[in-house]
Design a protein around this nucleic acid. Sequence first.
DNA 1: CATTTATCTTAACACTGTCAAGATAGATTT
DNA 2: AAATCTATCTTGACAGTGTTAAGATAAATG
Lengths: 203, 203
Amino acid sequence: MDRTDSYHHGALRSALIKTGLELISEKDISGFTLREVAKRTGVSTAAPYHHFKDKAELLQAMSIEGWRMLGERFEAVSDVAETPSARLRGIGEAYIRFAMEHTEYFRVMSRPDLYYSGVYDENREATGLKVFEMLRSTVAGLFPGKKNDDPEIQEMVLHAWVLVHGFSTLWIDGSIKGTSLGELGIEELISMLFRSDPCLTQT
Amino acid sequence: MDRTDSYHHGALRSALIKTGLELISEKDISGFTLREVAKRTGVSTAAPYHHFKDKAELLQAMSIEGWRMLGERFEAVSDVAETPSARLRGIGEAYIRFAMEHTEYFRVMSRPDLYYSGVYDENREATGLKVFEMLRSTVAGLFPGKKNDDPEIQEMVLHAWVLVHGFSTLWIDGSIKGTSLGELGIEELISMLFRSDPCLTQT
DNA sequence: CATTTATCTTAACACTGTCAAGATAGATTT
DNA sequence: AAATCTATCTTGACAGTGTTAAGATAAATG
């Protein structure tokens, strides 16, 4: 390799994040190796340590990118939805499909113990919280006149979140496949899931 | 150590499972080491390999024990419940509390990629499925006259499962804490969760 | 051009999962 | 009881991991 190529001045940090996301898309999290991220980026084994405290901190940075992407999807869906209830249903489905398409991002994003290394990156907290707030304001849209922290809204936020997150994790972990529900197709399951929720089926 | 102590004739397998469960209760899954399990059991590094194909297979055996315990809890709750709906609510709560009390068992149990090593242990599949069937028959109790595979029952099983699993994972991963819902206590959240479900609040 | 600062590499450490070869214990046979 | 056999465990090694200290190299600055 060209010698000067290994000097990514200022750009190594983001290059590592990018390579890391590529790598995690191919293999699962257990095969995610800091050494291989470095090798693929064309840099020595120890190089990442000048940009990240440890492996967990790189994963944390990667999860920020995941949250940003999910936020974008939420926005895209919100823009085209015509009713508050269609909007809620839309971002719910977006959540599930994101988990299915980017399973390994999703794993890292929702498992702080994978990337926690003593200190939380405030950017990560902010990016994750932003997505949560998008959900909350979408739910609030169903209750015009009520404040954001109204108990009824809080309850519905919890319910919606739990529903899509629970389904996503069960699905990507393959837990559903082994049961009698596994005979159903994914589309059927999703519509079944939303049908079971009165809040999401109301017009 | 006494020399003969290291020869667990026939009992090493279960001893390793037991030690493994103890170890995983103290540390999280990322700190779970086959070598330490062996050392704690008073046996050499390579000894486990005469009883388990690899690390994943030990984890699989451990997860069977977890499913068995959860099944016991379900039965205990079912026995005391007086109405079908109280029974469903009871096992739902049991699911959540099990996840909170035995977080690391729960993690291994619900993540096949942690213990999958090429072949599924049929005992594990059977034990996990048994718990699922307990949920299904509990839901079926709400619809006397309908068959076990009635679509309406299937839908409600999915809904109930997703609800308790989603909440459990969000809680143990600390995802809720960072949001506005984090200000609420766990008891409050649980009752909020069940209140949001019309099926579980009906009498 | 010389010096400073930012960035990366080399070389090592302790630790991990895993395996092949040999040793030891208990059971079985004679 | 002695000898054999089988099940069980240990020793010692290998490749791969995260991580760190010390030194080298590139770019920026004077």
